[in-house]
């Protein structure tokens, strides 16, 4: 099971992660962060497949991912 953490104050609301997520489990939130951006949030954490694409495409290194137990490694990154 993987766990995504999006740092609300590093996100600039660019939506790249939301559009890139293959499972479409991310969404733009309704809260504003310290810079006045609507930041991205994890809508359906349990459906995350741990592929890390959101982390890879985030231009602001705002997304980190941790997993518990074994995880299928899609690709070496």
């Amino acid at each position: 099971m993987s766990k995504i953490t999006i740092d609300p104050n590093k996100c600039k609301g660019c939506e790249l992660c939301v559009k890139a997520c293959p499972e479409q489990i991310l969404a733009m939130g309704k809260q504003l962060n310290v810079k006045g951006y609507f930041y991205a949030q994890v809508a359906e954490q349990p459906r995350c497949i741990g592929c890390r694409i959101c982390c890879i495409v985030c231009p602001d290194v705002a997304i980190e991912m941790a997993v518990q137990g074994t995880m299928y490694k899609y690709f070496d990154y």
């Binding site: 951006y37 741990g50 890879i56 495409v57 985030c58 231009p59 290194v61 997993v67 518990q68 995880m71």
Partner: peptide
């Protein structure tokens, strides 16, 4: 169950917010 970090900020990047515009791929 221990938690394994599989993606985080690389050590060679400082923990600061970059000034680049939203969505600018410089950050990548």
């Amino acid at each position: 169950m221990s938690e394994l970090t599989v993606f985080k900020r690389p050590e060679a990047l400082l923990p600061v917010t970059m000034h680049y515009c939203p969505g600018c791929t410089h950050g990548i």
